[in-house]
Design a binder for these strands. Sequence first.
DNA 1: CGGTCGGTTGAAGCGCATCAATCCAAGTGG
DNA 2: CCACTTGGATTGATGCGCTTCAACCGACCG
Lengths: 251, 251
Amino acid sequence: MIVANGVSQAPSQVSVFALDRSKPSLQSLFSRQPLEAHESGEAIFWEGDPATHVFKVVEGVLRIVRILADGRRIITGFLYPGDILGVSQGERHLYTAEAVNEVKLRRLGRSRFREAVDESPQLRPQFVAWLCEEMASAHQQMVLLARKSAEERVCSLLLTLARRSKGSHLPKPVIALPMSRLDMADYLGLTIETVSRTITSLTNRGVIAPSSRYAFTICQPAALASLAGESDGDDNRANGAATTRQAVWPQ
Amino acid sequence: MIVANGVSQAPSQVSVFALDRSKPSLQSLFSRQPLEAHESGEAIFWEGDPATHVFKVVEGVLRIVRILADGRRIITGFLYPGDILGVSQGERHLYTAEAVNEVKLRRLGRSRFREAVDESPQLRPQFVAWLCEEMASAHQQMVLLARKSAEERVCSLLLTLARRSKGSHLPKPVIALPMSRLDMADYLGLTIETVSRTITSLTNRGVIAPSSRYAFTICQPAALASLAGESDGDDNRANGAATTRQAVWPQ
DNA sequence: CGGTCGGTTGAAGCGCATCAATCCAAGTGG
DNA sequence: CCACTTGGATTGATGCGCTTCAACCGACCG
């Protein structure tokens, strides 16, 4: 949690900007806001609630949940520290946001957020870039849901989690699952049983090794990557130029 | 779109604005650009191509295609007249864009588009709003792909197409499918056979009636809506206030 | 301890995919 | 104008992957 602060100088008329004469970022917009905690399972807001605030995740993990009329549950995404939440356009939230873990976040009035971003030439491109990244990962998820097998889906998720925690540990990639099997299933469009079976299968084949129920060592990163079926993988430098434009397919 | 303006003040240095002293909109950015035509099936750009331009669809329909290494095909979305295309953040396009129909569009250099939007206080919120809508429909599609049955998927698509063409004809909703069965299948995460079977089943039950292979009359809009499994339907005024917190979706 | 909750494992069934044949409309060449 | 072709759509038969239902396990907790 790098919330450099110190503070003293009198706030300008746009008080949000008080802090960031140094390096304005989407993050710093929130740095003056009080930290609020939500315990595991708690909802930050519900689908249909008036969208009054924008949130920044400081610590913990959130899930974005949608529920169909008959109870089918879908998790459209997870949010990690540094992510921003609640920037939908309409009057109301289109989804429910719940704490997977114990979560700490800061909130900012939506219009204040908007204005602040809109008025800052530094922030605007950051914001657009962030939206585009969200869009890209949404597309990626559509690919997964539309055409990937159960095993590919699970491997893709593990790989994503591995990539996320990469940077910290280099040698033996150990990944920690923040979420339950049910969350994984609802994110991957599967059932808990299928997720469980797939994980044991991967374990039996030596691709991964469970440290605990919520932590795995990736024994064969390359295998995991190829099982994820993304034609890139742990390293996508390998194919770079070699890839032609269209995929070949025999069959 | 409430773009109150009027304005007269001399245009800035950015030439793109030459035309739109009246009411600047994302649309008008392109109005000076030449019209270019692409025939059915032709690619506008490929996944991996350098992202040099932004496009506006003037006429026809585009499909956004991604292909997995082994040939599995996914259509993550369709683009209709008025839609904008190619605003990804990275250096390269993340997907292929192909003409479903004969298509007419206008292009604009990416950096020029960016600058124009970034410099215009009227355009910025429009652009963000557009991105958010895209995001919302992507989420909607994830719900469909993750948890809906084949029949629900097909009905959802038909309903979306019906809503799109609504406004023109009021009494008997006749919808025209611009795309082939294969495109439908790859958009819905199904096979052509399943799509075909579902359509004949809906026909046999009198929910829809095919005018031709690419046009249907919706005989029972309410039934179609409920089969789409979205807890709202063709008319969501019916449940309007009755709806609890859940439900309600934009698109 | 008994109880509960999340996860695993097993057995049976179903929905959709797969394989394959046929159909239909539009286009082509004789 | 009519055989022939061609590509997409339909229809049928079969099989598989995942879901469903159900039992069991293991950890945590009162």
